[in-house]
Amino acid sequence: MRSKASFGLKISAAVGLLFLHAPLAFVILYAFTTEERSYQFPPPGLTLKWFGVAWSRPDVWNALTLSFQVATVATLIALVLGTLAAGALARTKFFGREVISLLIILPIALPGIITGIALRSAFNLMDLPFSFWTIVVGHATFCVVVVHNNAVARLRRMSPSIIEASYDLGADSFQTFRYVILPNLSTALLAGAMLAFALSFDEVIVTTFTAGQQSTLPIWMLNELVRPRQRPVTNVVAVIVIALTFLPILAAYYLTREEAGASSRA
């Protein structure tokens, strides 16, 4: 059925992929450069000392800790809300269903700046001071869709008769959820949680509007990008961020391999 790809197609596909991947390789390379003042290429020498310098920087640690805490709490909220919404929407038809689906996608379909400024002005109107929790509210809002999409994809793949079989064998709704639905849904939820975590951990646009004086890791990086203080430390932090987002995404992929072909981010 499948013929061979033409040479031109192969070349264009390869160029496309190279374009997607090469830039990150440079970030990794620069973490080892001995050059402090500029982005000189090729690097005049290679060193590991900047990892040590970054390690001893309390501002990096504070930002990293805050990002972890925010991502954890936002993911937990998104996990609950996204799973409930998926349960309601996966196999049902009712009036207004489309509107609710749209509502779930909206926080990532609209530009992040809209979500950010809308939340900021709402917090201002309610005289809520910016805090850890205002960051969490923003992040949880756009993380719901990730959990929801993963859960819906799995629920739709699940044979509806196994739920009926559970009722038939004497299990009530809660037992059915605990013993049948949850075990079959768990890897999809875990994958959704991983992606939500990665999304929150990396988010900068909404966060700048809801963070007040606190710095998450992306905010810290943004400040370094706009007003560089010690470039090599920024390079090292960039590599750490690559590593920290790479792992959950890879894990999420392996947890939902069957669905991978059929679904994308939204």
Partner: peptide, 14 residues
């Protein structure tokens, strides 16, 4: 998927 999900800021920084 990997570049899609990897950090926005790191990509800009690159």
């Amino acid at each position: 998927m990997m570049p899609l999900w990897s950090s926005y800021l790191v990509k800009v920084y690159a």
